[in-house]
């Protein structure tokens, strides 16, 4: 555990020793702020119009927070390849992988450390958005439970992407190659359910199950289903396992 934390700490410090961490958090905050502003403006106008009519107040969770969280998953899709592409590729290129692989630590500890470091950076990005949620609580009266499950869903989905990105980064020395492959695979997993209307119902079930976004919908609506948690956790475990195998085979090939 000590070793995992040492690696995670090094990874996290690595993001902030260079501009990477600041740029990622800063521009994530900018985009999230823009989504927040436009959705809020839209929500405000709708509420004004509705206020005159019969229906009563609109639901801020459904109208504002759910689409906001869904929008930020799109940003994750674009940003995560940038986080993970350097994790292994950079160590291999600069030769520091020799330090890690000859230190008295296990491959599992190195991989877990890198994974948790990247996850901590993502948590840092998300923590910026708590400010916007604070504003909603200050001026309005949203339900906190769907927000909490939404964030849990984001973390799980983020973890899945990160573990997959880590694996892809472990396959190459070249950051750009790692980044591009990661982005393409993420996008494929994203849109894989587009075919569901043309295929047989059985295939449709499988494809929907594979889709990363499909599992997130329930979280954003405040539903915590074990099915989805199992999906994300097994996704993460598979990604980390593949990374371990890749690092191990790299050792043999030299």
């Amino acid at each position: 555990m000590r070793n995992i934390l040492a690696i995670a700490g090094k990874e996290l410090r690595g993001y902030f020793a260079s501009p990477i961490g600041y740029v990622l958090i800063g521009f994530f905050a900018l985009l999230f702020g823009w989504f927040f502003y436009t959705l809020l403006a839209f929500f405000e106008r709708q509420s004004m119009q509705m206020a005159g009519g019969p229906g009563g107040a609109m639901n801020v969770n459904q109208m504002l927070i759910t689409p906001l969280l869904l929008n930020s998953t799109v940003v994750m899709l674009l940003v995560f390849p940038l986080i993970t592409m350097r994790t292994y590729a950079e160590e291999k290129r600069s030769g520091t992988i020799e330090l890690l692989l000859t230190a008295p630590i296990t491959d599992f500890e190195i991989i877990m450390g890198k994974f948790l470091g990247a996850l901590a950076l993502f948590a840092g990005m998300l923590s910026v958005t708590l400010l916007h949620m604070g504003l909603l609580f200050f001026y309005g009266n949203p339900e906190w439970k769907p927000i909490a499950t939404g964030y849990l869903g984001l973390l799980l989905m983020g973890g899945s992407f990160l573990s997959l990105g880590l694996f892809i980064s472990s396959l190459t020395k070249n950051q750009i190659v790692a980044g591009m492959i990661t982005f393409s695979v993420f996008l494929l997993l994203w849109v894989i359910n587009w075919v569901s209307s043309f295929v047989s119902p059985e295939t449709q079930t499988v494809i929907n199950y594979l889709s990363v976004t499909e599992h997130f919908d329930d979280f954003s609506r405040g539903i915590v289903d074990t099915k989805h948690i199992v999906y994300y956790l097994s996704f993460i475990a598979t990604g980390l396992f593949l990374t371990m195998k890749s690092v191990d085979s790299e050792r043999w090939r030299g």
Binding site: K10, R13, G14, A17, G95, I97
Partner: peptide, 11 residues
């Protein structure tokens, strides 16, 4: 000590 010292340039 490998042939190229395994240093992290940003640290």
């Amino acid at each position: 000590l490998p042939e190229t010292p395994p240093l992290y340039p940003d640290m």
